[in-house]
Design a binder for these strands. Structure first.
Length: 301
DNA sequence: ACTCAGGTACTGC
DNA sequence: GCAGTACCTGAG
């Protein structure tokens, strides 16, 4: 792999490199491709580029280390936090293997970590995600950032930060038309106004319990249980949240017809959900026709 | 020209 | 509570 070429010194003329030493449960492909984030993209050399927590970055693996090149000094604490380095994922993964199905799912998803993402970005991104496909979600978010975020530079390229809630709150639906997000536009503006006005204090919710957070989040128009649970899991650091999307519901229906009490996973429920998601989705994508016709409402006619 | 996509709000029971 | 339906848009 040509990844070595990104690494020369701790401080380079075009970026600053952070090294994270890892064990087995750290797989960049899994982490960035398991549906929890939308702004990282794989390059032809196996490295990933994206913008997180206001910083452009390139991430790649060499042996037992993951390197992150970014645009500022002293970002090691930030990246350690973002990649959830304080949690023992090997132990967490073992603990969710409660039966054959979960053992298989966890095996397939080994290497996933739950990112600790920016709260407003996560809320806004998952509002956009509703009833939408992933390529389009990414396009909409990049357009939002390109038009209303701040420009950053790395390796001679332009990157754009996610616009903060105050910036988005100052926009009109007309301004937002450029991102082509359809009926979600008023949802985004409403959420931005609530956050920037302090009516919805995401940092405070992170200090409280899951149910309180869910009630506060679902008060927003356009935020239901699914989006709220994604925000809770991926940005409020409440690891027991269990977002149920169409793929999870399929997996649950097929493997737990009598239902499953997700509290058996305890604080690892969110991780269990991610394992199930990638496992079921992998199968589903290669067997699309099997699932065609039995999902979603029909207009009949 | 179609269906469908990591949902949610609204209506009518 | 639960079923039925509309909703912007564009990728496949």
């Amino acid at each position: 792999m040509a990844a070595v070429s990104f690494w020369r010194n701790e401080m380079e003329e075009d970026g600053y490199v952070t090294a994270l030493s890892t064990e087995d449960d750290f797989d960049l492909d899994m982490i960035f491709d398991c549906g929890q984030c939308f702004r990282w993209n794989a390059g032809p050399d196996g490295s990933w580029t994206g913008v997180a927590m206001g910083h452009p970055a390139r991430a790649w693996r060499e042996g037992n280390s993951v390197y992150i090149k970014s645009d500022a000094k002293n970002l090691k604490p930030l990246w350690e936090d973002y990649f959830d380095m304080g949690r023992d994922y090997a132990a967490a993964r073992e603990s969710v293997c409660v039966d054959g199905y979960m053992t298989a799912a966890a095996g397939a998803g080994r290497g996933i970590r739950i990112l600790n993402q920016d709260r407003w970005e996560t809320l806004c991104s998952f509002i956009i995600s509703q009833c939408n496909n992933i390529p389009r979600i990414k396009t909409i978010i990049e357009t939002l950032c390109g038009n209303f975020g701040e420009k950053r530079r790395l390796e001679g390229e332009d990157y754009y930060t996610f616009p903060d809630a105050g910036t988005v709150a100052s926009l009109t639906e007309e301004d937002l038309a450029i991102i082509r997000c359809g009926y979600r536009a008023p949802y985004i503006l409403g959420a931005a106004r609530a956050v920037s006005a302090g009516e919805l204090d995401l940092d405070a919710l992170a200090r409280g319990d899951e149910e309180t957070a869910r009630r506060a989040l679902t008060r927003l128009k356009g935020v239901g249980e699914k989006v709220a649970n994604c925000v809770i899991l991926f940005s409020l650091r409440i690891p027991g949240a269990f977002p149920r999307d169409v793929w999870i519901n399929r997996a649950l229906r097929e493997h737990y017809p009598d239902g499953i009490d997700t509290t058996v996973f305890g604080d690892n429920a969110g991780l269990a959900q991610q394992y199930m998601y990638v496992y079921r989705r992998r199968e589903g994508l290669s067997n699309r026709r099997k699932n065609a016709g039995n999902t979603g409402p029909k207009t009949g006619g």
